[in-house]
């Protein structure tokens, strides 16, 4: 009996230490996918609703900040690789870099253009599913009558999680790009795809930026 009581005495501090470790571990889960998405969404909304960044003359600065916020959470190389799919392996390293660069500009311009129309809708993180190095964070944009489901598919990179695909209402952004890129490459050529993407980026830029800045991302060979 005495022996047992002594042991129990030793066990109590151990339990305390363990619970402290568990507490620390749970607070160190700051890099959990859903929290990362939440933080990014908040940051983007802060930029978009910032009164100091409203108006046409502030467009470039707003754009720069949006770009920064989004690129921190998105893995453009992975998205570009998945979108180009079977054609990726046929491209040389410099071509791949050029493609990733153009692809990220296209995504950012598209995203920035869409987010400009934001008018205070509520965005909530619904849940997250983690499976090894893969995770899916489900979010919902609350509109007047119903929700639009936007799911972020993430990949673990070291201790960080980066988005590699976005599912809007169950449809994959990567798959959408993949079929379009594939169609353009098969019906004409890879060079034609690059040209089309350049034109699209310039068009989207023109919609957001004031006219003077239209051609800063500009392209030789735009028809």
């Amino acid at each position: 009996m005495r022996m047992r009581r002594v042991r129990l005495h030793h066990v109590v501090p151990l339990i305390l230490v363990l619970s402290v470790i568990v507490l620390l571990a749970s607070s160190a889960r700051a890099s959990e996918p859903r929290l990362l998405v939440e933080a990014s969404v908040e940051e983007v909304l802060r930029i978009v609703s910032n009164p100091d960044l409203k108006g046409l003359e502030k467009a470039a600065e707003r754009r720069r900040q949006l770009r920064q916020a989004v690129s921190r959470r998105f893995d453009y190389t992975e998205m570009a690789r998945r979108s180009l799919a079977t054609h990726w392996s046929r491209r040389s390293e410099p071509e791949r870099q050029e493609f990733v660069d153009l692809f990220s500009k296209l995504l950012e311009s598209d995203y920035a253009y869409k987010i400009e129309t934001y008018s205070g809708e509520k965005i909530v993180v619904v849940d997250q599913q983690i499976d090894g190095d893969y995770a899916k964070v489900r979010t919902a944009v609350r509109l007047k009558h119903e929700d639009v489901a936007i799911d972020y598919k993430m990949l673990k990179e070291d201790t960080d999680w980066k988005v590699y695909d976005v599912m809007i209402e169950g449809l994959s952004l990567v798959n959408n790009f993949r079929s379009q890129f594939n169609r353009i490459i098969l019906s004409s050529s890879y060079d034609e795809l690059i040209k089309t993407m350049r034109v699209r980026v310039a068009d989207l830029d023109a919609l957001v930026s004031p006219p003077a800045r239209n051609h800063q991302g500009g392209t030789p060979g735009t028809p």
């Binding site: 690789r81 998945r82 799919a85 079977t86 054609h87 990726w88 798959n175 993949r178 079929s179």
Partner: peptide, 12 residues
């Protein structure tokens, strides 16, 4: 029409 499964190949 009927539902079917379409697979788009990747590049991995």
């Amino acid at each position: 029409g009927d539902k079917y499964v379409q697979i788009s190949l990747g590049g991995s």
